[in-house]
Design a protein around this nucleic acid. Structure first.
Length: 532
RNA sequence: GGGCGCGUAGCUCAAUGGCAGAGCAUCGGCCUUUUAAGCCGUUGGUUGAGAGUUCGAGCCUCUCCGCGCUCACCA
């Protein structure tokens, strides 16, 4: 009990000493390498070509030489990680992989001598980083290969990479053997996943490309990228439970933001006109295949625009991102053909609900009337207080799943949209749309409410919908109202989950496949050993 | 949080309540153009953790941990 920190420290060292048999073999090799004067972790490396550059240069040299003629000699120093070895006594082959791909090494006693070939076979393992110099050649089977004249260790791997082997079939398809496949292990040890699964690396390259394209698109449309607080004294802009934290010196309760909205719109008051932010939101809610506690959000606000203009910009932006990543506007998501070519379908929510349920929400201006009709038609929503929530239920249960092709569902109930501007002449409806693709929500946007008196009223109404025990739910943001009182230009605002867009564009079912380090529970082994 | 399913060697997976196995990886041997190299041999396990039933548990029961699917929650 006393000195608990020291106990944990000791315990940790015991855990660290638990090497498996494969690791013990490699540790022994490290000792022997040092004894032989080989530093397993040298400070510097040298490289003249990436794998891809070496292959391209050799092919170009072959072309220059012409068929049947030997190409000009190309010397190269390559670096990479050993992915496969094939030792044959006086010969040895290995594949190394760098960020551009794989290339084969060919070691022979003619150049290296028996001792150096055997030394490579004995001490170099899959997973080690190596450097090899030599001359490019083609083997008898036609593979462009580095004929090695010298080699060096760059970093020894103690733990074996999860072994995976590929064999390319005659039809070009690749069969993978014993690849790292467990979703949990892959997420927990993303480093190993990335190291052995090239398609995972490709997914995250695509993700980076998507974000880069979104940013460039908005920059080119004269939006200013800004950064607003993640630690906020009040949270708002969405309906979600926040994470709370505490500033020790200020003795202040703080929240991690659940949206950027209220801060970004303050900037419109400051005459910035067009602003956007790409960053992390945090929501203290359930985790699922499409929810992570922290996720990447894109929001922009556009002065003098309305939700119709935002729709047009949205379909342009998302289709541009799709084309940049996939080279086409048409993709397949989980077996469904999706076409992002603008313009996307526009569907009024009232009409959409009518199409799938036969209920006209305009005929039911209050919750009681709507609920009675729903019940009469056999719909049994869980207990819900407001008209908007009943409508939301109908949309979520019956309409959303039908929206496979990119669709803007527009004109939402006022009472579930406290930051959106009312539709002129229709007090129950606001100018809001959500973009749906493949049956789930991709983005959410509206003509922003800029009337400070109306906004104050909405905050009050919103507060009423929540019961007294929701003490934390303080939606009244006085500073935001003060900003709005200085005058906010009419504007259209937009929010989109970047992770979900990435899921769509990379054909991933789970958000965990597009997050490098998704949230997972503690992986400490043995439940009964945890003490608190 | 609820329901259903899963957890076996470093990785991918087998195993009617009856000696815990295979492929790849590892280790040793043979092999001078291989590519899942091949051939011969070898090693590797607290079957997620703990308890129970049983002559005997990877398998049945309970508790716990973790993951997956699903529901709830979720702009």
């Amino acid at each position: 009990m006393f000195c608990r920190g020291a106990f944990n420290f000791f315990e940790r060292h015991v855990i660290m000493a638990e090497y498996n048999s494969l690791e013990q073999v490699r540790l022994q090799k490290i000792t022997e390498l040092r004894a032989a004067g080989v530093e397993p972790y040298p400070t510097r490396a040298e490289r003249t070509h990436t794998a891809a550059q070496a292959i391209a240069e050799f092919e170009a040299a072959e072309k220059t030489a012409g068929p049947g003629n030997p190409p000009a000699e190309i010397k190269a120093i390559l670096t990479g990680r050993i992915r496969a070895t094939r030792a044959m006594g006086k010969l040895s082959f290995a594949h190394i992989e760098d960020v551009t791909g794989k290339i084969q090494l060919f070691l022979r006693i003619n150049e290296l001598g028996q001792e150096r070939v055997s030394f490579f076979d004995k001490y170099y393992d899959i997973g080690d980083f190596v450097q090899a110099s030599g001359v490019l050649m083609r083997t008898r089977t036609g593979e462009i290969t580095l004929h090695v004249h010298d080699y060096a260790l760059l970093a020894k791997a103690v733990s074996p990479l999860p072994a995976s082997k590929d064999v390319t079939q005659e039809d070009g398809s690749v069969i993978r053997y014993a690849a790292l496949e467990g979703a949990e292990l892959r997420a927990r040890q993303r480093y190993a996943d990335l190291a052995v699964n090239p398609d995972v690396r490709e997914t995250f390259r695509k993700r980076a490309r998507i974000i880069s394209v979104l940013r460039r698109f908005l920059d080119e449309h004269d939006f200013l990228e800004v950064e607003t607080p993640i630690l906020q004294p009040l949270y708002g802009g969405a309906a979600a439970r926040p994470f709370t934290t505490y500033h020790n010196q200020l003795k202040q309760q703080l929240y991690l933001r659940i949206s950027f909205e209220l801060y970004l719109k303050r900037l419109l008051v400051g005459n910035l006109e067009r602003v956007y932010e790409i960053g992390r939101d945090f929501r203290n809610e359930g985790v699922s295949f499409k929810h992570n506690p922290e996720f990447t959000q894109l929001e922009f606000y556009w002065a003098y625009a309305d939700y119709l203009k935002v729709m047009e910009l949205t379909e342009q932006m998302v289709s541009t991102a799709c084309h940049a990543v996939n080279g086409t506007y048409k993709i397949v998501y989980q077996g469904q053909d999706i076409d992002f070519t603008p313009p996307w379908k526009r569907l009024e929510m009232r009409q959409g609900i009518m199409d799938v349920t036969g209920i006209d929400i305009h005929a039911h201006p209050d919750a009681e009337s709507l609920l009675a009709t729903m019940r009469a038609k056999g719909y049994n929503p869980p207990h819900m207080a407001t008209r908007g929530k009943l409508i939301d239920y109908l949309v979520g249960e019956y309409l959303e799943p039908t929206l496979i092709q990119p669709t803007f569902l527009y004109d939402y109930p006022r009472d579930i949209s406290p930051l959106a501007k009312s539709k002129p002449g229709d007090p129950l409806t606001v100018e809001r749309f959500e973009g749906y693709v493949a049956g789930f929500e991709l983005c959410n946007a509206f003509t922003e409410l800029n009337d400070p008196l109306d906004q104050e009223q909405r905050f009050i109404e919103m507060g009423r919908d929540y019961t007294a025990e929701d003490e934390e739910l303080n939606l009244m943001d006085e500073d935001y109202l003060r900003a709005m009182r200085y005058g906010m230009p009419p504007n259209g605002g937009f929010g989109m989950g970047v992770d979900r867009l990435t899921m769509l564009l990379t054909d991933k079912h789970s958000i965990r496949e597009v997050l490098l380090f998704p949230h997972l529970r503690s992986d400490e082994a043995g439940g009964s050993e945890t003490r608190e």
